[in-house]
């Protein structure tokens, strides 16, 4: 249909565009690697890889998608390498036992303090800047090992078998870790936003 305003090669040579793209990539990589140096390295390698085949992509949107696809693989490589240095299964056991004890009683039913109450009008929160500050704070509060697999699943869009292969854990362990992350996030958002009185109310309800 339409042609791109600038050739892809020109895009990667446009210092303004490249600088903005690079900044976005570093933020993305740092979120997953929790290490600015590793993030910078991954971005550098991804951009170097992008230069090799850039002429195949017409337009900035396609180029950006492709560069980020390369970056995801670089980040996954780094995560895989980091994971070799720790015993993944012991991490899972550690995470398995720390979260449920304070939510459920001995029979596995909700403790009265932790039983989820209804969240009023959650959709409206997505439009509120303040909600996102709380949301990011809650994400930051998820333990690193849980956060890593949760972000791979929900932010980077990896399939579960890809995550298992990358991180070196079984699917059973992954489901436990994802569940722990969701429990943490649900509990944090409930306490810090929905039960703190900041959430918007539906009309006609209290």
């Amino acid at each position: 249909m339409s042609t791109a305003a600038a050739a892809p090669n020109d895009d990667l040579l446009d210092s303004g565009y490249l600088s903005a793209l690079r900044q976005q990539m570093v933020k993305f990589a740092q979120m997953h690697l929790s290490d600015v140096h590793l993030a910078e390295d991954a971005v550098q390698e991804a951009l170097a890889g992008a230069l090799v085949g850039a002429q195949r992509f017409a337009g900035r949107a396609a180029l950006k998608t492709w560069v980020f696809a390369i970056l995801k693989h670089k980040v996954a490589d780094v995560l895989r390498h980091k994971q070799r240095m720790v015993d993944a299964s012991s991490l899972c056991k550690e995470n398995e036992e720390d979260a449920t004890n304070d939510l459920f009683d001995r029979r596995g039913h909700w403790l009265s303090d932790s039983r989820p109450t209804a969240w009023d009008n959650p959709q409206a929160c997505l439009e509120q800047q303040q909600f996102w500050l709380i949301f990011e704070a809650c994400l930051d509060g998820v333990p690193a090992q849980l956060s890593r697999v949760f972000m791979m699943r929900e932010f980077m869009g990896f399939e579960t078998d890809e995550i298992c292969e990358t991180v070196g854990i079984t699917s059973a362990n992954l489901f436990v870790m994802l569940h722990r992350a969701r429990l943490r996030l649900q509990e944090c958002l409930g306490q810090r936003w929905f039960e703190a009185g900041d959430a918007p109310k539906k009309k006609g309800r209290r």
Binding site: Q123, E154, R182
Partner: peptide, 11 residues
């Protein structure tokens, strides 16, 4: 409901 909302919020 809240787990469903979490996925929507992540997107």
């Amino acid at each position: 409901k809240q787990v469903g909302f979490l996925r929507q919020a992540m997107q």
